[in-house]
Amino acid sequence: MRLKISHTTRYRFEVPVTFGLQQLRLRPRSRRDQQVIRWDMTLEGATHQLSYEDHHGNYVDLIGFDRDCTELSVRCEGEVEIGEAHGVIGRHVGLVPLWLYQRVTPRTKAGPAVKALLKSVEGGTVLGRCHALMPAIAEAVAYETGSSESHWTAEEALTEGRGVCQDHAHVLIACAREAGWPARYVSGYLMMDDRTAQDAMHAWAEVHVPDLGWVGFDPANAMSPDEHYVRVALGLDYGDAAPVNGRRVGGEGESLEVAIEIAQQ
């Protein structure tokens, strides 16, 4: 399936930004079942500084605010061809040792709620338990747009009983690592059949399953990613894979506007 994506993030600042940087993880990379046909990034109010590939294999762009910037827009536009692999990414490749994905991070530290959830799907194969976890998570953490804070941990989301896709992914990762399975966070795009305009990127998780390798699980939709999913960035948790990570001087009174359009070509 070929998807056409456009993604514009626009910041407005009441007080001009005198100096600032943003680290962007917004460029998808090609892999076996994902061909990036073209991908362009246009900046207004900022200048591209440099690019590199981080340890998870993500493309990173560092941009610098133009002096006294009051409006910044980052516009990504591209086309990606997705193959159907039923969520299977496959063998672990790259320099990052698999054990790194077993490392517990503050956001994915298992507390009583995570442990109880994991216990509820006891028995069976890793693959089976992950599939069972997806609806369990969706039920335990009600999807509510804007309900959670971006610094919430998996445990907090479970305790609050609500959250967004980021929290779903964190809970699944926390369960997997608690069980000793390597797991990672994925940020990306999801094409929805009923609409083209969206207001946020999507997030899900991947677990390293014996024999299959990496397999994707999207608890928010209780399914493994198919050809509707575009992988953009990976990490141990949201912190590693965040689309935008920035610091600035000035720029008080920020307002943010995100417009995403995803359509089948």
């Binding site: 940087l21 680290q23 440099l50 690019s51 590199y52 981080d54 990173v60 560092l62 990570n245 920035g246």
Partner: peptide, 20 residues
Amino acid sequence: LNFNPESALGVPGIMDVYRA
């Protein structure tokens, strides 16, 4: 930007330049 966000001694983005 890349390590301890509380650090006032460092330079945001120095690791990005390094990795590039």
